[in-house]
Simulated scan of single mutants.
Amino acid sequence: MKHLETAYKTHDGKELYLQAWMADVPKAAMLLVHGLGEHSSRYLHLVEKLNEAGVSVFTFDGRGHGKSAKVKPDAFFESADDYLKDIDALFGKVKSYSPGLPAFIYGHSMGGGLVAAYVLKYKPEAAGVVLSSPAIKEAEGTSKILIALSSMISKYFPKLKALKLDANKVSRIPEEVQKYLQDPFVYTEAIPARTGYELLQLMNYIQGNASEFNLPLLLIHGSDDGLTNPKGSELLFENAKSADKTLKIFPGGYHELINDLDRDEVMNLIVSWIEIRLA
């Protein structure tokens, strides 16, 4: 497999780190959108399986993340709409780089929420969408007062470190948690207020427009995910008007299913789901 790296200048002048792994005999292409605080190089083991199946994978480090961060990752971005514009531009590049091939989109966690919102707002022509532990619904019991305050905090203190995520909920495998914590390109501090507020608005939008989702869809989530709410995946699955939709809940699964105890089954499911739609 051939690895490519480059930079992309966004509509508002930011520079994003892009990379791609090209299949030897490509049958399809995929844009992969990573999760909150992490970066695109953490998916190499999944990419290898996709490449073996003939799927070239294009991905990027999002605003404030990984190698796209100016100094070091801070997980900060001003606007989810800007992030959606990035996804739209890069999905266009994927399609132009792989003319005539079916193009898929994969999103994990925050990336899953962004991809779901992108499909709803932009109506892209895609062969299918894979959403892994997508951020679609806030955690059960989230304080309504806190939600109401989030708008004001985001406006006046956008970079205030507001919400700390528990890294131990990433995986049931201790070594995977340690890899996550020791990766210099993973942001593990509290999430900035603006980022959190923008994601909350994004989730509200998806919940209110889920019935407009009409692309082939594979949703995967762990039943014990403590970072994104599995009920969000159930909500999208129940409301999406896609004729071709699949929901797989992994019993006991934590947040990063491709790095959890069921990872082989999870990755095989993703690859086989795509292969079936290429047949």
Rank of each mutant, 00 (worst) to 15 (best):
A103K: 10
I136M: 14
A135E: 13
K123P: 09
P134F: 12
A127N: 05
Y118S: 03
M110C: 04
V115G: 07
G107A: 02
F104A: 00
A116K: 07
A117H: 06
L101V: 02
A116R: 08
L101K: 13
I105G: 04
S96V: 06
S96L: 10
Y106A: 01
G111R: 03
Y97A: 02
Y106F: 14
A116N: 09
A103V: 15
S132W: 00
G113P: 04
A127G: 09
Y118H: 13
P102G: 02
A116C: 04
L114S: 07
L114D: 04
P134T: 09
G100F: 09
G100S: 12
G112E: 13
S133E: 08
G112A: 13
P134M: 11
I105S: 05
P99K: 08
L101P: 03
G113I: 02
V119T: 12
S98F: 01
V115S: 07
L120E: 05
S98A: 03
K123I: 05
S96E: 10
K121S: 13
E125A: 15
G113E: 13
V129D: 00
Y122L: 14
V129M: 02
H108F: 09
K137H: 14
P124Q: 00
G100D: 10
V130T: 01
K123R: 14
I105K: 12
G111N: 08
Y106R: 00
P102C: 05
Y122G: 10
S133C: 11
A127P: 00
Y106Q: 03
S98M: 02
K123F: 11
Y97E: 13
V130H: 03
L101Q: 06
L131A: 14
Y118G: 03
A127M: 07
S98P: 00
P99V: 10
G111E: 03
G100P: 03
G111V: 01
A103E: 13
K123C: 07
K137S: 12
I136V: 15
Y118F: 15
